[in-house]
Design a protein around this nucleic acid. Structure first.
Lengths: 110, 110
DNA sequence: CGTGTAAGGAATTCTGACACG
DNA sequence: CGTGTAAGGAATTCTGACACG
């Protein structure tokens, strides 16, 4: 419905609410922005506004940080993922490759 | 995907942002709550939180108010609509009736 | 590197109330 | 009835910085 997508990406949530939603401190959320892991928008008065997508991404970041992954590494991961989603042809190719791998593995094991 | 639905109904937007999104004043938004046209949640510290659904409803309310419809009437409208969406069988019946009406009207006019 | 905290200021939100109509 | 506004207080958000490690 296209409308649904816009809800997920619309930046309307303030940092305090994001903090509650993710369990991260306000300080952490601002720091991840400094490291370019997220890019909130600014409201007319300068307060940060986040989308549900941002919240999800922050939860991923939180998980990775708990595993000890540094923000620099996380940034690389994010860039890889974005590259993929911007190149559907390449994505399909990789998925096909995955299926082929699974296929041959099945034959070998069977 | 079920997830999408949750974005639309999750109450995370503060009143100032809702005001920007709808063009209504903060005073108006609070008043419509007093008249039971909307029911935001309260955050841990007592601030009102709205969902995208609430924002949409407020835009409808704004349109009706501009036409001069009083809040009491708007409340009735809302209750009617909610009744319908809670009774799918009745809803289908009404839609069928609508189709029948359109059919006969067509025959008469043609 | 990643995060806590105190600092000072600006803007938000809340409630109850008075005003106008 | 519907909405604006001033009032006083509490909580939020912002930035730049110092601290620890």
């Amino acid at each position: 419905m296209q409308e649904e997508r816009s809800y997920k990406d619309k930046k309307v949530i303030s940092i305090g609410t994001v903090s509650e939603l993710t369990g991260l401190s306000v300080r952490q959320i601002r720091y991840y922005e400094e490291r370019q892991l997220i890019s909130p928008e600014r409201s007319s008065k300068g307060t940060r506004k986040y989308s549900f997508s941002d919240v999800e991404r922050l939860m991923n970041i939180a998980d990775l940080r708990e595993e000890g992954v540094q923000t620099t590494e996380i940034l690389k991961d994010i860039r890889k993922k974005e590259e993929k989603s911007k190149n559907p042809a390449q994505l399909r190719k990789k998925m096909l490759q995955g299926q082929l791998n699974a296929h041959f593995q099945y034959k070998h094991n069977g």
